[in-house]
Design a protein around this nucleic acid. Structure first.
Lengths: 219, 219
DNA sequence: ATTACTACGCGCCGAGTAA
DNA sequence: TTTACTCGGCGCGTAGTAA
C-alpha cells in the first residue's frame, strides 16, 4: 500500500480513538466513510497491519485495531505539516445549555443549497437538524468575536422563490465530537448558537433541554 | 483521482506555498518527493486541476500552480482532524546565533543507526550535518523545559564497537523551514542546540557564524 | 532541461462467496 | 450479521518518447 492510502486510513482510525488503545471497527463502516468497498477496507487494514502501522485482532465478528508507534509517527508528521501550513488554531471554548429551537434549524439544513455546501466545504453530510445552545452570559463576548472571525462561508441562494442568506460556519466540536458551528449572517441572536454534525447530537449524548454542553470552535 | 491522493498532493503543494499564490513546481521534483514517477506526478496535477482543487499554468518549461478555495477546504478539514487527534501544539520559540560545531554533528547524523531512525520517525533524509545554535541566555530556561518535554526518541545503538546514546528529537522549524531539533540525552550543553533538516540550512539561508536564527519547536 | 502523450502490463478494486 | 478469500476486468503507474 502506498503512503497516501496509509495516511488516510490511519487518520480515520485515529479519529476513532485508535491512538489511545484498541478500538472496535467494522470494515463496512470504514469503507463507507472512506468511499471504498468493504473488501478494500479489509485489505487496507490487513496491509496496514503488515506494514506494522497498526495492530489488528479479531474481536468476535468484528475487528479491534490500535495504531502502533510507527503509525503515530506518520500521523504526527502530517499534523506538523498541517500546522506549518495553517498555523496553530485559535480555540474558542463556549459553554451553555441545550434548548429547543423552533425547527427552523432542521428546515434550513435540509435545503439542498446549504446541504451541498456543507458536504463540499465542511466534509460531512449534516444530520437534518441543529443543536441550539444558549451560551452563558460570560461567553457572549466570544460569540460576538466569532461573528468577525475567519470562517467557511456558505453562500446564499434562492430556492422556490425564497431567498436564503449567507451563513458563516466554523469547524467545531461539541463535547469533543466534530461538527460545525453556524451563524446565519442575518441572525440577530447574541447568545444562541447552532451546531450541526453528521449525527444527531441530542441522541449521541442523550441531551435534553437544559443540559450543559461544551463547544470548542477552531479558527 | 481518489481522495487520499488528492490530499497527499495538496499538502505537498501547500508546503511549497501554493495556498498563498502561484508557486513554480516541477513534476520531476514532486514525483521524487511523493515517491511516484514524473509521469504520475504530471497526471496527478492534471487531475487535481480538473477536479478544481488547483489552478495550473505553464510557466516556461515548468508549471506554476495555486490551490483553489475548494482545495484549501480539503486541507483545512485535514488540519482540523489532526488537531482533534493530537490537540494544539505547544510552540516554543528560541532565538540565538549560528556557531560552528566541531564536526561531531556531521559525524553523528551520518551514523546509519541514527539516520534510519530519522527517516522513519521524522520523515526526512537528513543532510549530513547539524546547525549549531547558541541560544540567547533568556531562552536557556526554555531549552531546559524541552529536555523534559514529549519527544520523538531516537534509540541508542552500537556500531563498530562504539556506543551511541539515545537522542531526543522534536519537530521544529528554522526561519520557517521544517526540520528537527535534536538533544543527545547525554549532552550537558545548556545553551547550544542542534538542528537537522533535509538540506544544508547554512546554504539555504546563507548563514554565517554569528547570524541570528529563529527556531520554533512544536510539541 | 522541461511536460505530457501513447501503450502496455501489473496490480488494485470490488463482486461473489465461504466461513 | 461479520471478515476476508478468489478471481476477473479495468484502471493506474511507468517506460518510451515527442514537443
Amino acid at each position: 500500500m502506498n503512503d497516501a492510502y496509509a495516511q488516510r486510513l490511519l487518520r480515520e482510525l485515529a479519529m476513532r480513538g485508535a491512538i489511545q488503545g484498541y478500538v472496535v471497527v467494522s470494515t463496512t463502516d470504514i469503507g463507507r466513510k472512506l468511499g471504498i468497498s468493504q473488501q478494500s477496507a479489509s485489505r487496507w487494514l490487513t496491509e496496514l497491519a503488515e506494514m506494522g502501522l497498526i495492530r489488528k485482532e479479531r474481536f468476535g465478528k468484528n475487528l479491534k485495531v490500535k495504531i502502533t508507534q510507527e503509525g503515530e509517527f506518520i500521523l504526527r508528521r502530517a499534523w506538523f505539516e498541517h500546522i506549518l501550513i495553517f498555523g496553530t488554531p485559535e480555540v474558542i471554548t463556549l459553554k451553555g445549555t441545550v434548548m429547543s429551537g423552533l425547527g427552523e434549524g432542521r428546515y434550513y439544513v435540509m435545503r439542498e443549497g446549504y446541504r451541498r455546501q456543507i458536504r463540499e466545504k465542511l466534509f460531512f453530510d449534516p444530520y437534518p437538524g441543529t443543536l441550539n445552545v444558549k451560551v452563558y452570559p460570560t461567553y457572549r463576548k466570544k460569540v460576538a468575536e466569532l461573528r468577525e472571525g475567519d470562517c467557511v462561508m456558505l453562500r446564499g441562494f434562492t430556492e422556490g422563490g425564497k431567498t436564503f442568506g449567507r451563513v458563516k460556519a466554523f469547524h467545531a466540536t461539541v463535547n469533543g465530537y466534530p461538527g460545525a458551528l453556524i451563524i446565519p449572517e442575518m441572525s440577530h441572536y447574541r447568545d444562541v448558537i447552532e451546531i450541526i454534525a453528521d449525527v444527531s447530537l441530542r441522541e449521541k449524548f442523550g441531551l435534553r433541554d437544559g443540559d450543559e454542553v461544551e463547544i470548542r470552535v477552531y479558527l
